[in-house]
Design a protein around this nucleic acid. Structure first.
Lengths: 189, 189
DNA sequence: ACCAATAAGACGACCGTTCATATTCTCAGG
DNA sequence: CCTGAGAATATGAACGGTCGTCTTATTGGT
């Protein structure tokens, strides 16, 4: 058994700092302090700040729980709705202050780092694909009240969600998310 | 008549830098270099970096051309569509790399500066109100193909647009905006 | 005793901001 | 029309601090 490593604590601390203050708004010092380790230790585990951020993004993507979109035990429409409700509850935990890390990093780092832009892109694409697949099930079940294709609708819903989350962050309220659900319900039922 | 001032050049340069690299990603030095003036000159015209950013935001809000949403000479639906098309053409000018400054600053600075968060909030609210008013005209003309209220739809459309713009920034393509227009056309016609 | 993980501090560069100085413009008074 | 005092603006160096990163010495487990 290796000596208890601070690597996990560092990723956790970095996720918290990046999510709250953004990439450029967070210093290595902040992360180290939050993790309770000296600054110099960070580079024992990560080659650079950007490498650390990349790991944070990977973790965040996993935490979106895309598996619940593939759980055939639940009917497609409630399943999709529950997914967005889960994301909403995640946002509410921090009073809607943090927003979605895909959106935050996408806005802040797309022009700074192609690697990061790629990570955000593929994260969003994976998510969109999963949403689209649920919508295809819904269509097969006759639960799609629109002539739009599942693909068109999936792309749009994910983007609309990101926009609503951003607005929720700016207004510090759930209202934009409620607005999303109202329109969501007018599309699928 | 005052001596030709570098103030304008500074705001322009700051807008460019902030839009491209974000607030925390831009240094006073960058702005000064872009404007072609020495670094020290910046503080002759602005009390702080944040004050400069505030001025940039004010300018950006004006440049959104909300007046075109109030031009009763054009029918409401084409008017609204033309508005979003104008925004899209603005984004295309920079290969979709820059995104919307409301979205960028909202994501990056909401937790950093309450003043900035307020500016983004009121900018988006003003915009949303103008959009909603056009939608009310459209409803009166029987051109709204949805049971949603103009207010619900206005809020949603603005948020969905912001999300689409963000996605366009990440993918560096117009595709998400096209997706927005498809759904837009399914709502109003 | 060996070796990887850790800690601590130092690196040069740049951060946002301030200040003392130099320059330029405005406009009285002669 | 000229002059020169005074206000406004421009300048670039310098401030203390923090940035991301690296080097070096020390620690602790096998």
């Amino acid at each position: 058994m290796p000596r208890p490593s601070v690597r996990e604590q560092l990723v956790d601390a970095a996720a918290e700092c990046f999510h709250e203050r953004g990439y450029n708004g967070t210093g290595i010092q902040d992360i180290a302090r939050t993790a309770g380790v000296p600054k110099g230790s960070v580079y024992n585990h990560f080659a650079s700040k950007e490498a650390l951020a990349a790991e944070v993004m990977d973790r965040y993507a996993v935490s979106r729980k895309l598996e619940m979109l593939r759980d055939k035990a639940v009917a497609p429409v409630p399943r999709l709705r529950a997914h967005f409700e889960y994301l909403a509850s995640d946002l509410k935990q921090f009073s809607f202050e943090r927003g979605c890390m895909f959106g935050n990093f996408g806005a802040e780092l797309s022009n700074h780092s192609d690697a990061m832009r790629g990570k955000v892109d593929s994260g969003l694409t994976l998510w969109t694909t999963a949403v689209t697949q649920v919508l295809e099930e819904a269509r097969a079940a006759g639960a799609l009240m629109t002539s739009l294709t599942p693909d068109q609708l999936g792309q749009f819903l994910v983007n609309a969600w990101e926009g609503a989350v951003l607005r929720a962050k700016v207004t510090r309220s759930r209202t934009p998310l409620d607005g999303f659900f109202v329109v969501f319900d007018s599309f699928v039922a």
